[in-house]
Amino acid sequence: MAENNSQPSFPDNLINCGVTFICWFYFVFAFLFFFSFFYAAAFIFSRERCQSFQYLNYLFFKGFLGLLRILTPRQKWKVDPKIKTIQGSIIVCNHLSYLDPLIFISLLPRGKSIVKTKFFKAPVFGWILKISGYLPSSTEGIHAQRMITEIENMGEFLGNGGNLFVFPEGTRKRGTVPSEFHKGVFKIARMYRCPVYVLSIHNTDKLFMPGKFFFNTRTDNCIRLKMLSCLTPADGQKTISVTALAENVKKIFEKNTYSNEDTA
């Protein structure tokens, strides 16, 4: 078995390569030969196109994560079951790996997020993001209209049980101190006075390391997703301070996430 920080052996590399290849195979072919038909049907026939796309995203990534779990028996997955019950809320979490958003999509049948505007330009993927109601991270040029529409619809989305999950640090993070937060998500919380759930994710970066193409499947690892806290506006509280909300979340991260860089 390969140890942390040591070079994997040739057979381990071969297995990592195989797992990565199978996952990509699922990504491309499960979409092309199975899910694309449902996406097309939802696009044409669904009255709630956005909601239908979110549900298809959920199923697609549930399949992806299910396959990944089967293919990586050395990875233990501990996901707080309470997370699946969250509704009508904003969810904030630290960000370690490209796997993180996929995990959230696979847990939340009605979920959307804020994504970098460059992803909206990607063929097929960008189209799915648009129809699913994802928000662009900036309002440059053509994205202004999308941002206005999505922010204005957010109240109804949250009111109907949808969740907005966001990584307020913006980018994948390594180290022991939270990065400066993007405050947009806290401004949405202020605007719609909705609960903010604070979650922490651990060790996804050990399975899918930033900057690497292949999964690292041969090291014992425990991927954990925990619910740390829920911040709700106090009864009668007229305004919500974005600065105070962001500071609260940061303190919770510092106490529970970054001070507890755990191992498998």
Partner: peptide, 13 residues
């Protein structure tokens, strides 16, 4: 003042 597009939308309301 860190005023961004989300603030702008809220201010418009």
């Amino acid at each position: 003042h860190g005023f961004d597009s989300i603030d702008a939308i809220e201010l418009l309301a």
